[in-house]
Design a protein around this nucleic acid. Structure first.
Lengths: 237, 237
DNA sequence: GTGTCTCTTTGATCGAGAGCAAAGAGCGGA
DNA sequence: TCCGCTCTTTGCTCTCGATCAAAGAGACAC
């Protein structure tokens, strides 16, 4: 089942996350004492779409994609989960099942709390309730941004925005540019932008020819952030 | 400036909204004593995109559309605000300006609180904090649904889903069917579905020919909910 | 009533991007 | 080292829906 209890180790990691950094040590200890940690490998999931929402989670390290599958089998990537993000909780409040699947793209470690602990979790610290609201508010804003992009922008600009967002959220500086710090396929990018892997591949090839990015199997290195930004900002003309 | 203080009248209305119905009278009174009510007419806005987020609001009656305008002037409708909805608050938590414009489509009345009162607002009742989280969680879910629809469905199904959602949120039963209970243009529907008014018009005309809906200037009556639902569910085949 | 808006309808054209097909290419396993 | 799998690239075709254009048609003011 992959359960572990390395709570001593986790504490410093947890305290390094913005959401917890101002929380008194005693409160952090109390929260951690109720948590279980769970490690899963790439391709495994913390929870699956439609499954009973028994737990909510905090990602300590690794990387997840939250996907939704439509009735007719099409998949989209709702968001990417980075270390320090809470996940699997937005819905634990209102509904009893998970609206998506949280799939690890690399080996990932998360803390798990039983859903029933949620009220306690936010009571523990008023600051945390506000943090949770902020987090989810931010996520809502991102979702609206994405709706706006999908509704009004042509594919190339959407892909540019998505890639830029990924560099901000998961970029690692290298000599040649900024690398997306986890394995990502053309298909993934397609599912984040509402297009097909073919179109993404064509676009990335064109960018590579212009020296904007450097591709590779499940790899992406952005060589010219400013150039890509210019492309994303240009209003279609 | 359109400010009024009909707080006696408001109280019963406020208490009829799900978010407040379990709140003790004293708490409701306390909240209302800090509120100002404001009435605006169609075409006016409670706040504008980019303006300083000085207040958050509760819609008592009327109907609003929250819009965002892109850099190149394209507009989308982020959501429709119905009586009983909080609005203009998601961002008051994290950012200092409003991310969209809250435009009245009919004469509308809202309660207004200064942004600084928000912490007090949620402290007033733990139940309210949970309600706020639920509300915003629900909104996030809706946003994801919309992203999924725009990403994977062709226009006709998206319009069907949007119209069905409107009948649920703002439908009024009539002999001939369910009427969308506020003035809505083809352009509005286009901005909710990420298409153009031309395409929406063509689709509605086709539906009218099939007896599914009945159109009119800024009017829409759904005659056959089930038929429309079938159309929305059919997976493109 | 008449004029003037704004909203709606419908036709015709055109292009972005989906869908289909098939050939590379990196990577892990035996 | 070779095989097989998955991911990627590229060409071709075709369709959905955007765009352009212009003609109705409610609603409201005068």
């Amino acid at each position: 089942m992959g359960l572990e209890f390395p709570l001593k180790i986790d504490k410093s990691v947890v305290k390094s996350f913005p959401m917890f950094e101002r929380m008194p040590d005693a409160d952090v200890d109390a929260l951690l004492s109720q948590a279980v940690s769970k490690r899963i490998g790439p391709g495994e999931a913390f929870f699956e779409q439609g499954g009973a929402a028994t737990h909510f989670f905090l990602l300590l390290n690794g990387r997840l994609k939250v996907t939704q599958v439509t009735a007719d089998g099409q998949q989209i990537i709702v968001r990417v989960v980075h270390p320090g993000d809470l996940f699997g909780f937005a819905k634990a409040l209102r509904r009893s099942d998970y609206p998506g699947t949280a799939l690890a793209v690399i080996e990932s470690l998360a803390l798990c709390w039983a859903t029933e602990l949620w009220p306690q979790f936010i009571d523990r610290s008023p600051h945390l309730a506000v943090s949770a609201l902020n987090t989810i508010g931010q996520r809502l804003e991102e979702a609206h941004t994405r709706i706006r992009e999908i509704s009004t922008e042509e594919v190339e600009r959407r892909v540019a925005h998505t890639v830029l967002r990924l560099t901000k959220q998961a970029g690692r500086a290298e000599e040649a540019g900024v690398r997306i710090d986890f394995p990502i396929t053309r298909q993934d990018i397609a599912e984040m932008t509402g297009t097909t892997l073919h179109t993404v591949s064509r676009i990335l090839s064109a960018w590579e020819a212009k020296g904007l990015v450097e591709g590779g199997r499940q790899k992406l290195l952005v060589r010219d952030i400013a150039g890509l930004q210019a492309l994303a900002d240009s209003d279609g003309r």
